[in-house]
């Protein structure tokens, strides 16, 4: 028990001081937290519930737009603000900025959770590959529609104001926003998987028909799980909107083949259906991505595609799955304890 306290204590201490001892990597670390958030939340439905969504990026993009629109709407007229041909310069006061950010990010989370309920009600009738393709379709359609919607800036996207104080302070600010959300998502997932609800999700993953035959409220559980996961992704998207300052629909917000697929790869790399898998996977993936981005000029995408294929094909259980196999005792897996008790 005490060992565990030391472990978590050191971890939290590191999270708190990381941006100060690694000052050059503040933005990198914030992006890492973003990866961790989307990976953990993807695993809530993908790993724990067995519904492999390729469309969770929809909530990231929608979160960005919702947060930005709320923040703008507090101070100005949205249609005017996003008009590409207007010369007006819009200036946010500090209060407008922080109030807009707070309400925008929260609103993004809530709106995305509602979206998940509505979309899920339709798509959860689909199973296996149809669900994956259907959600991918939702994400692509979302991006296409938003990029043709002039009121929110169309293909140009939206520009938000810069963090009002100094630049470095801004980076720290966003680091802690992401880190806080990430820690919250992790703690929430850890708690969720220990409840009856978590067990029901596993039951749906392993044999949904049996779960139905046992009278579990499968549809309700699936909707709630996806909606909780969408809540965190929406919040992450909302924070990203303010961190990136400018974003546009297809490449940044609804980036189906970038972040949309990265989150899945993170989880597979770390180990599907485990608590720590998404976290470990996100860290390893992020490191890999940064290295390839810097050293494989031009070929980084090919390297990433190769990583996806290799992970999926050859490294199926992921890092945590491999650890469980090699060191089951670390994970408190009891196999024959009862029998040993009986014989002694």
């Amino acid at each position: 028990m005490s060992k565990r306290f030391v472990f978590y204590g050191v971890l939290i201490a590191f999270i708190l001081i990381a941006p100060f001892i690694l000052p050059d990597f503040k933005t990198q670390l914030a992006t890492l937290w973003l990866m961790i958030i989307v990976a953990i939340t993807w695993d809530m439905t993908g790993g724990q519930m067995g519904y492999n969504s390729l469309g969770n990026i929809f909530f990231y993009g929608t979160g960005m737009y919702v947060a930005a629109i709320i923040a703008i709407a507090i101070a100005f007229d949205v249609g005017e603000y996003t008009n590409a041909f207007s010369d007006t310069i819009y200036k946010f006061t500090d209060t407008q900025y922080f109030l807009g950010a707070a309400l925008g990010v929260l609103g993004a989370g809530v709106f995305c959770a509602l979206c998940a309920l509505i979309i899920g009600y339709i798509t959860f009738g689909l199973r296996g590959p149809y669900f994956a393709i259907g959600t991918l379709g939702v994400a692509i359609a979302g991006g296409e529609l938003v990029s043709n919607w002039d009121w929110v800036g169309g293909g140009q996207g939206i520009s938000l104001p810069v963090y009002p104080y100094d630049l470095e302070g801004g980076k720290v600010f966003f680091y802690f926003l992401f880190a806080g959300t990430g820690v919250a998502a992790f703690v929430f997932a850890k708690w969720l998987y220990s409840t009856r609800f978590g067990a029901a999700l596993n039951a749906i993953r392993d044999d949904e028909e049996k779960a139905e035959a046992m009278g579990l409220h499968t549809m309700r559980y699936k909707l709630i799980a996806w909606s909780l996961s969408a809540f965190f992704v929406g919040i992450a998207g909302g924070i990203s909107a303010f961190q990136l300052i400018h974003f546009e629909p297809l490449e940044t917000a609804y980036q189906t083949i970038n972040l949309g697929i990265f989150m899945v790869v993170c989880v597979l790399l770390g180990g599907k259906g485990t608590l720590w898998g998404p976290v470990v996977g996100a860290i390893v993936f992020h490191l890999f991505k940064e290295v390839t981005w810097n050293y494989f000029l031009g070929w980084q995408w090919v390297a990433l595609g190769t990583l996806i294929v290799v992970t999926v094909v050859y490294f199926r259980d992921g890092i945590m799955g491999w650890l469980v196999r090699v060191r089951p005792e670390w994970f408190g897996i009891r196999v024959e304890s009862r029998e040993r008790e009986a014989t002694s």
Binding site: I261, W301, G305
Partner: peptide
């Protein structure tokens, strides 16, 4: 050949990876 007997998501994702590689190589 290594994903045929696996669950469907594996083949879906593996071919998605192949799709990315092909598209990027053509682009380069």
């Amino acid at each position: 050949t290594r994903v045929i007997e696996r669950d469907l998501f594996t083949s879906l994702l593996a071919t998605f990876g192949i799709a990315i590689i092909i598209a990027q190589v053509l682009n380069l």
